[in-house]
Design a protein around this nucleic acid. Structure first.
Lengths: 110, 110
DNA sequence: CTATTCTATCGTAAAATTACGATGAAGCAG
DNA sequence: CTGCTTCATCGTAATTTTACGATAGAATAG
């Protein structure tokens, strides 16, 4: 036990959950907000901006990269991270799709 | 270690992360999708629909209730769960707000 | 070449999550 | 009252997540 029973759910449900999991940490939200704002996609100075150790930031970046929300490009000694615009839209659409479903059960219901 | 350093992030970031965490499991997505669809807000037959033990479903329902996405009303021996329409909109807006931010760094950037 | 900088990865510890059986509490049926 | 159904909670185990120091690798600076 302890491991999620992924096989028993639809790929749709697993997909939404996987992207939600990527967003399920304030540090990763902070990273994304930072990458959204900066015109010149910042690199390792993310470590300076966040209240976390370098290894921890690197780990969060890895998770965001794993779901494809960001991509990293080596630039000399440092690495430049950017949001993948296509993926960003895709994930937005996936969440929109979930939230656009009208709530069948309204106030009078319960 | 192992615990998220919540204090060091903005309440905005923590809020998004908290809602994302609530959505970060396929079973909870399945529950929400089910509650969205059903006109008569179903109750404990969620347990029948999901490939999980009753105790586990109850635990997932508790988490969704904790963030306010659903509410439960006792109806005799059973409990009726519904999506909270206000909260549902609120959370949708929060995610929309995040995803509506234009991506500053475009393709040519890295 | 050597030193320095930047970042990824390893190893590890603490905590949180996921899952389930067992048990308890609350309401209904008889 | 007794039994049955429904659901929440407790206790527990397996797994995953979060976090950090230490270390390694790669590129630049001198």
């Amino acid at each position: 036990m302890g491991s999620t029973k992924t096989q028993h759910f639809t790929s749709d449900q697993n997909q939404v959950a996987a992207y939600a999991k990527a967003l399920a940490h304030p540090a990763r939200i902070a990273i994304l907000q930072h990458l959204l704002k900066k015109q010149n996609c910042i690199c390792g100075d993310l470590v300076g901006e966040l209240p976390l150790a370098q290894a921890t930031v690197s780990q969060h970046l890895k998770e965001l990269k794993a779901v494809g929300l960001i991509k990293g490009t080596v630039e000399g000694t440092s690495v430049c991270y950017c949001i993948d615009p296509q993926k960003w839209e895709e994930v937005r659409d996936i969440f929109m799709n979930l939230f656009s479903t009208p709530v069948a059960c309204q106030d009078n219901c319960c």
